[in-house]
């Protein structure tokens, strides 16, 4: 099952510079495991040690933010297109408070 994954600049060091890679899996978790097997270390940039989606990235399935599709449990099908973007956020607030505010 081929799923196209668009990789942002900041993570292309894991994909040998590739902007688009292919993966497989029937859920986002399975896809990320598959990607990590081919591009070692990628998983750690997408998933926290606690097992949640990292707040520094946005992941989309086709045109939808995966946070609205069950996050890591989001179901995937052959031909889906995944886009990973760096979350753009910041501000004067302290980091811990900001992370809590993001609530991810």
């Amino acid at each position: 099952m081929a799923i196209e994954v668009r990789i942002p600049t900041i993570l292309r060091s894991y994909t040998g510079g590739a902007k688009i890679v292919e993966g497989a899996g029937d859920s986002l978790t399975a896809l990320i495991d598959d990607l990590d097997a081919k591009h070692n270390g990628l998983k750690g940039r997408l998933i926290t040690p606690e097992g949640g989606l990292h707040k520094f990235v946005n992941i989309y399935v086709n045109d939808e933010d995966v946070r609205f599709l069950g996050a890591l449990d989001a179901k995937l099908s052959d031909g889906d297109s995944i886009t990973i973007l760096p979350a753009v956020a910041g501000g004067a607030l302290g980091f811990v408070a900001a992370a809590a505010l993001l609530g991810r």
Partner: peptide, 23 residues
């Protein structure tokens, strides 16, 4: 990528640095 600080100086906060994802 721009943003404003409305009560502090125009220098990246620790939050800005943590999130900066466009090298």
């Amino acid at each position: 990528i721009y943003h404003s600080h409305t009560a502090t100086e125009a220098y990246p906060s620790r939050t800005d640095i943590s999130f900066a994802g466009e090298p």
